[in-house]
Amino acid sequence: MFCVPQMSQLSITNLRVSIGEQEIIRGLSLAIPKGEVHAIMGPNGSGKSTLAKVLAGHPDYKVTSGEILMDGENIMELAPDERARKGLFLAFQYPSEIPGVTIANFLRAAVQARMPEGEELEATDYYARLYEKMDLLEMDRSFTSRSVNEGFSGGEKKRNEILQLAMLEPKYAVLDETDSGLDIDALKVVAHGVNVMRGPGRGILVITHYQRLLDYIIPDHVHVMVQGRIVRSGGKELALELEEKGYESYEEVKTTAREPALA
């Protein structure tokens, strides 16, 4: 990874995060260069969602040390919306419901928020793009007039997250357990939506509990996260190995593991 310039990666160095007295992320380093898809796998409670939310700037978590750079810029002091407008996207494990606000209006506000001041979003262009992305994700047009996530099934919520990803075209996307709640057909559709988004201008971090998703979104690198640390990194075959052996061996290793070297 030496060859990747700071300017085109999302890099996390020696990150430590606590909530209350409890330390959840305990010295984590990771770099996601543009053009690559990285996967983080780990057991429940290992701190994967915490990492995702800390990247996005969630106010509940306290970063006690470490650094997060996006294209070389320290984003630690930025508000969540500033990070988002700079090109960071998080597909939530548990997306919030926003009663009364339609998907169309919500996304429109989000797209508008990325435009220079004084510029107005052209309604017809907007709807053309929205429908195109919905078709890609095999979503019914009637979705646009439903309130964001309200009364959605688990699968519909996840699809809606990927729709937003597709519309907002971020530089870096973190997908937190996007596979949970999806049946196999829906999983394929969503994975396709993500694969379309892959490209040289975008870094993607896929967080998952199961190997299954990685059959469809094939990662360039796989990292194993246990108890707030990355305990092993490897290629896509690592996912298969984990599927077979589980995380147990790592959970024993954790007490003796040294800080994982990134580079």
């Binding site: 969540p80 407008r85 606000v101």
Partner: peptide
């Protein structure tokens, strides 16, 4: 707070997020 965070993550300022919620209401 989670709703506001969700909306902020999509690029809306805190104020925009709140007014969108109120308008939705």
């Amino acid at each position: 707070a989670e709703q506001i965070f969700y909306m902020q993550q999509r690029g809306l300022t805190e104020a925009q997020a709140m007014s969108l919620s109120v308008n939705g209401f």
